[in-house]
């Protein structure tokens, strides 16, 4: 079957295949498999803040692994929804990291992470109001101007909603993407978690997401905490999320897909089993070839490692 699908795709977020989050504990396995020419995945997602450092192992590993496969940058501290001013030091560091690693794209979360210069290191939900939408859209535009590219924002998992909400999270996310002309990182585990926590329909959420905005999909495993699901990234992807993934691919076409695992991290080979499962679903639903055609971003070729 041809890989060409009748789905509108963002031109600045080409299809990369299936990837995993880059975690230091996996560096040795990745380097070893890289030497053998079989990484087991098509691309990596690096956590931006881990590489906003001045030297040493993190940057060396980033450069080396970037020479082996395409990479994207995913941040947790842009604080795009905060009432604080955007942090120019953070944006400068992100721009510098982007110059260094030439990522396929850059993403962060639709949330606020702190206020009054205090970082909660968590993804706090926004009040879904017209006023906050206007505020966040203006900040996304500012960030995109600063970085010289569109960014993608991820729907967060959440455990509370606000009395002031004027629209659903999904309506807010789509409206923001249109208004700021940014991308969406669709985290299907987060859709599943929040749908459980706030009693909404996960499939209806996916139905409302415009395919031409979706840069990437995230898959991960949550934890149970009484009546809530918590986004802990410490377990395998749940069957309900695999089902939602297949459902999403039927509507969106082939989207770059990433397995996230951040706590109680399994050996690399075990992570690859999750990636393999995602690949099987991706191929079955979208009839996509294993390797994405061409070289979708900058330094994608393993034959031209980064020299720095």
């Amino acid at each position: 079957m041809p890989a060409v699908a009748p789905f509108p795709r963002p031109v600045d977020a080409p299809f990369l295949g299936v990837g995993v989050g880059l975690r230091p504990v996996h560096y040795p396995a990745i380097l070893e498999r890289g030497e053998a020419g079989d990484l087991g995945v098509d691309w990596f997602e690096a956590l931006s803040e881990n590489y906003m450092v001045r030297g040493g192992r993190p940057l060396r590993m980033l450069d080396t692994i970037r020479g082996l496969a395409p990479m994207v940058l995913h941040g947790v501290s842009m604080n795009i929804g905060s009432s604080d001013p955007l942090d120019p030091v953070y944006l400068d560091a992100l721009a510098e990291l982007a110059r260094r690693s030439e990522p396929g794209w850059i993403s962060d979360h639709l949330c606020w992470t702190g206020v009054e210069r205090t970082n909660l290191h968590d993804l706090m939900p926004m009040p879904y109001t017209e006023a906050s939408l206007a505020w966040v859209a203006s900040r996304v535009l500012e960030v995109q101007d600063r970085l010289g590219r569109r960014i993608a924002l991820e729907n967060p998992s959440s455990y509370l909603t606000y009395a002031s909400d004027e629209m659903s999270e999904c309506e807010y996310l789509v409206a923001l993407a249109e208004r700021a002309d940014c991308g969406i990182l669709l985290d299907l585990n987060n859709v599943y978690v929040s749908a459980n926590n706030h009693d909404f329909d996960a499939r209806a959420y996916v139905d409302a997401i415009p395919a031409e905005r979706v840069f990437q999909i995230h898959l991960a495993g949550p934890s149970d905490a009484g009546p809530l699901l918590i986004d802990t990234h410490d377990s395998p992807v749940r069957p309900q999320v695999w089902d939602l993934y297949a459902y999403a691919l039927e509507r969106l076409g082939p989207v770059s897909t990433l397995i996230e695992w951040d706590d109680q991290i399994p050996p690399y080979e075990e992570l690859l089993e999750e990636a393999q499962r995602a690949r099987a679903i991706l191929e079955r639903v979208t009839h996509t070839e294993r390797r994405p055609a061409g070289e979708p971003c900058g330094k994608a070729s393993a034959s031209s490692p980064v020299g720095r």
Binding site: L120, H121, D122, Y159, L160, T161, Y162, A163, S164
Partner: peptide
């Protein structure tokens, strides 16, 4: 008045989830 609770879980309990995560993280 700011955060919604429901029969499953009140507003303070929901915020407590974030408070626990903040400290332990």
């Amino acid at each position: 008045s700011a955060v919604c609770g429901n029969a499953r879980m009140g507003a303070a309990e929901r915020l407590e989830v974030y408070a626990n995560a903040y400290f332990f993280r």
